[in-house]
Deep mutational scan, measured.
Amino acid sequence: SDFTIRIGDRTLHLKNVSEEILKILEELLRRGIDFEELRKIVEELIK
């Protein structure tokens, strides 16, 4: 499924993301992860 994360004025667009990855990202966001850290993790996950 497609997913968009907005943190402040920044946006991260994800396409064809599995439910498992979404759950991980949601947990990281709940813990207050930094946007740049989140972006790096996402890039690793979707390689």
Rank of each mutant, 00 (worst) to 15 (best):
S1W: 13
S1I: 14
S1Q: 14
S1F: 15
S1D: 07
S1L: 14
D2A: 01
D2R: 01
D2T: 00
D2H: 01
D2P: 00
D2N: 02
F3R: 02
F3L: 10
F3T: 03
F3K: 02
F3D: 00
T4C: 06
T4S: 05
T4N: 05
T4L: 08
T4R: 05
T4I: 15
T4M: 07
T4E: 09
T4H: 09
I5T: 00
I5M: 03
I5Q: 00
I5C: 02
I5A: 02
I5W: 01
R6I: 15
R6M: 11
R6C: 10
R6F: 03
R6D: 05
R6G: 02
R6Q: 12
R6V: 11
I7Y: 04
I7H: 02
I7F: 06
I7Q: 02
I7G: 00
I7R: 01
I7A: 02
I7K: 01
G8S: 01
G8P: 00
G8Y: 02
G8H: 02
G8L: 02
G8F: 04
G8I: 01
D9K: 07
D9A: 06
D9T: 13
D9H: 09
D9Y: 01
R10D: 06
R10F: 12
R10K: 11
R10V: 09
R10S: 07
T11G: 01
T11C: 03
T11S: 06
T11H: 09
T11I: 11
T11V: 15
L12I: 08
L12S: 00
L12F: 12
L12W: 06
L12Y: 14
L12H: 01
L12K: 00
L12N: 00
H13D: 02
H13Q: 07
H13R: 11
H13C: 11
H13T: 12
H13V: 15
L14H: 00
L14N: 00
L14D: 00
L14A: 01
K15Q: 04
K15I: 04
K15V: 06
N16E: 03
N16Y: 06
N16D: 05
N16A: 05
N16V: 03
N16K: 04
N16H: 07
N16T: 02
V17T: 03
V17M: 04
V17A: 05
V17L: 05
V17Q: 02
V17H: 01
V17P: 06
V17F: 03
S18M: 02
S18Q: 05
S18G: 05
S18Y: 01
S18D: 08
S18H: 04
S18T: 09
S18V: 03
E19A: 14
E19S: 11
E19C: 07
E19T: 15
E19P: 15
E20W: 15
E20S: 09
E20Y: 15
E20A: 10
E20I: 05
I21F: 13
I21S: 11
I21A: 12
I21K: 08
I21D: 12
I21L: 11
I21T: 14
L22N: 03
L22G: 09
L22W: 13
L22E: 05
L22M: 13
L22I: 15
L22Q: 14
L22C: 04
K23R: 13
K23T: 12
K23N: 11
K23V: 13
K23P: 11
K23W: 13
K23E: 08
I24V: 12
I24N: 08
I24L: 10
I24M: 12
I24S: 10
I24H: 11
I24D: 07
L25R: 00
L25V: 15
L25N: 00
L25P: 00
L25I: 15
L25M: 04
E26W: 15
E26Y: 15
E26M: 15
E26P: 08
E27T: 14
E27V: 15
E27Q: 12
E27D: 11
E27Y: 15
E27C: 15
L28H: 13
L28R: 05
L28V: 09
L28I: 07
L28G: 02
L28T: 06
L28M: 11
L29N: 03
L29A: 05
R30C: 05
R30H: 12
R30Q: 11
R30K: 09
R30W: 11
R31T: 08
R31F: 05
R31I: 07
R31D: 06
R31E: 05
R31W: 06
R31P: 03
R31A: 08
R31S: 05
R31C: 04
G32P: 13
G32Y: 05
G32H: 09
G32S: 09
G32C: 12
G32M: 05
G32E: 12
I33L: 12
I33M: 09
I33K: 08
I33E: 05
I33A: 10
I33W: 10
I33Y: 13
I33Q: 05
I33P: 08
D34R: 08
D34G: 15
D34Q: 15
D34C: 02
D34K: 11
F35Y: 10
F35E: 04
F35H: 04
F35C: 02
F35I: 04
F35V: 04
F35N: 03
F35W: 07
F35M: 07
E36V: 09
E36F: 14
E36P: 04
E36A: 08
E36N: 11
E36D: 14
E36I: 06
E37T: 15
E37K: 09
E37A: 12
E37D: 09
E37R: 09
L38C: 03
L38V: 06
L38K: 01
L38Q: 01
L38H: 02
L38D: 01
L38N: 02
L38G: 01
R39T: 13
R39N: 12
R39H: 10
R39M: 13
R39G: 07
R39D: 05
R39S: 11
K40P: 06
K40L: 15
K40G: 10
K40H: 13
K40F: 13
I41D: 03
I41G: 03
I41N: 08
V42C: 03
V42L: 08
V42G: 04
V42S: 12
V42F: 05
V42P: 00
V42M: 06
V42H: 03
V42T: 07
V42I: 08
V42R: 00
E43M: 12
E43F: 15
E43Q: 08
E44L: 10
E44T: 10
E44H: 10
E44C: 12
E44F: 15
E44D: 12
L45A: 06
L45G: 04
L45H: 07
L45R: 04
L45V: 07
L45N: 05
I46T: 12
I46G: 12
I46F: 15
I46E: 11
I46D: 12
K47Q: 09
K47Y: 14
K47N: 12
K47R: 08
K47H: 12
